[in-house]
Design a protein around this nucleic acid. Structure first.
Length: 158
DNA sequence: CGGATTTGACCTGCGC
DNA sequence: GCGCAGGTCAAATCCG
């Protein structure tokens, strides 16, 4: 969607007043060199619903879905953030020769989703988009990534 | 054997 | 209304 994501990158480096700014250089075990948070899209979507076709159920549930996009320089597609994910889909996106993977948190009642996409321009960069908020503790502690995740929670504008 | 992945079909929103 | 693009389902399959 955002062809020049570096613009967003600069924007976040130059302006942290808007809440989101995360930049670290782990450069260690996970081969993830740098990462930053793109602006959280706080959008109100009627979401859910799907199926149940005919029945004219009105979509009163207007919970806002928050999406957080990270661009991560990593050699692996899926970043283990400590949660348990189940892949439920994979689609090829236009303008991108790499497929996008869709994951869902396997914790019961936790509807957090995430999608992982690799940039065509830089196949060494993956974009991970989180959707929703976890309401349960981390399933599996990871090395320094856990600490990063923890910071992310701090920055979340609940 | 149970849970996670794979993969094509299906659904929906949107632009023409 | 049709077709495309993105998102999800679900059956089959894989793997510990």
């Amino acid at each position: 969607m955002e062809p020049n994501s570096c613009q967003a990158f600069n924007s976040f480096h130059g302006d942290s007043s808007n809440g989101l700014l995360l930049d670290w250089k782990s450069g260690s075990s996970r081969s993830a060199e740098s990462c930053f948070i793109q602006k959280p899209e706080v959008e109100e979507t009627d979401n859910q619903i799907m199926k149940s076709s005919s029945v004219g159920k009105q979509k009163e549930k207007k919970i806002r879905k928050q999406r957080y996009a990270f661009e991560t320089r990593s050699q692996v597609d899926v970043l283990d953030d400590g949660y348990r994910w189940r892949k439920y889909g994979q689609k090829a996106v236009k303008d991108n020769k790499f497929p996008r993977s869709y994951y869902r948190c396997t914790h019961q009642g936790c509807n957090v989703k995430k999608q992982v996409q690799r940039l065509t321009k830089d196949e060494s960069v993956v974009v991970t988009t989180y959707e929703g908020v976890h309401t349960h503790p981390i399933h599996k502690p990871t090395d320094n990534f856990e600490q990063i995740l923890n910071q992310m929670h701090i920055y979340k504008p609940f």
